[in-house]
């Protein structure tokens, strides 16, 4: 139950950050052009969207950190697996576990470094340049995202130990395109 909620939260967070950042930049561009239109100008010129780029960057950095954790769960992170895929299953299993363990180790360390860094920044009055939000809150993406990623690596490792299954991302999968249907449509009518 808890896991389900965590999964959905993770997905909702990164999808909304993606949509949000797109809308922010869209709005900023539209605003810039409206500001050049004589009559509309007087209404929109006083809106200040100078923070749009900064907000977009921070949204995407957060998306990247949490999306990377989601990616562990869905197996999207690519590695050089040509060699281990030729090994006999037992040995390959050991390498897979080693890789997952290394992932957990790295993200765990980075999470802790990030936490220390955030603590250090929270003792200063640093704010972001345009939005003037406290930097330590913005930097929270590093420890939170990394710890979540660490947890995902452990989770995948655990599943692998129990079932021998790894999440696998299929790049060729396209929702909504049915090859058989498509075949009928190929070529001009």
């Amino acid at each position: 139950m808890f896991m389900k909620i965590l999964d959905r939260l993770e997905e909702a967070l990164i999808a909304s950050l993606m949509a949000g950042a797109t809308l922010v930049i869209f709005a900023a561009v539209v605003h810039r052009y409206l500001s050049g239109v004589p009559v509309v100008q007087d209404y929109v010129l006083h809106w200040n969207l100078a923070w749009a780029q900064e907000l977009c960057i921070y949204m995407f950095v957060w998306m990247a950190k949490f999306g990377a954790a989601y990616g562990v769960r869905t197996g999207i992170h690519v590695g050089v697996d040509v060699i281990i895929n030729r090994m006999e299953p037992n040995l390959r299993g050991k390498f897979v576990l080693f890789g997952l363990g290394a992932g957990a180790l790295f993200t765990g360390i980075v999470g802790s470094l990030g936490a220390r860094f955030v603590y250090h920044i929270s003792e200063t009055d640093q704010v972001s340049a345009d939005l003037e939000w406290p930097m330590w809150i913005i930097y929270l993406a590093v420890p939170l995202g990394s710890y979540l990623m660490c947890f995902r690596f452990l989770q995948v490792a655990w599943t692998f130990v129990r079932t021998g299954e790894l999440p696998h991302h299929d790049h060729a999968q396209v929702d909504g395109i049915d090859p058989v249907e498509a075949a009928k449509e190929g070529g001009p009518a």
């Binding site: 810039r32 500001s35 050049g36 010129l45 200040n48 100078a50 780029q53 900064e54 340049a129 345009d130």
Partner: peptide, 18 residues
């Protein structure tokens, strides 16, 4: 990026772009 420069351009009626 600077609040003051932003205000400066606005005071002149221009639209600042970071």
């Amino acid at each position: 990026s600077s609040k003051v420069l932003d205000a400066q351009m606005r005071a002149l009626g221009a639209l600042p772009q970071v």
